[in-house]
Nucleic acid binder design. Sequence first.
DNA 1: TATTTGACCAAGA
DNA 2: ATCTTGGCCAAAT
Length: 115
Amino acid sequence: MSQRKSFDSECWALLEKIPTGRVTTYSAIARALNSKAYRAVGRAMNRNPAAPKVPCHRVVKSDGSLGGYAFGAKKKAALLKAEGIRLKAGKIEDFKERLYLFPFRPEKRKAKAIK
DNA sequence: TATTTGACCAAGA
DNA sequence: ATCTTGGCCAAAT
């Protein structure tokens, strides 16, 4: 009963947790799923189920550049700017501060550190 | 089943 | 700073 949803579905679900005006990285999503499949995450985005509904445009690369977008990189930049993200030389300004990381929860709740 | 591909990442030159 | 190389994982072919 574990993992009855596909890996891709899990990725899309996490996207909805990204606050407006924030961005996250492919790596962060993979880590949230306790995995290193950053590439699989990106592929999942391309196979995005409902583009405007799922904020896949808020997912960027680790170095602060936007990365790709199924509707075109230009569109992605425009969407981010509309959310208040400033771009500088094709990269996100104050990337670290704009970056949103998902709560990291280890499988073993040995310590009640979270929740 | 094996191979290929991809909206990536990190390190090295 | 850019470019190359190797690695990483899941889904598609």
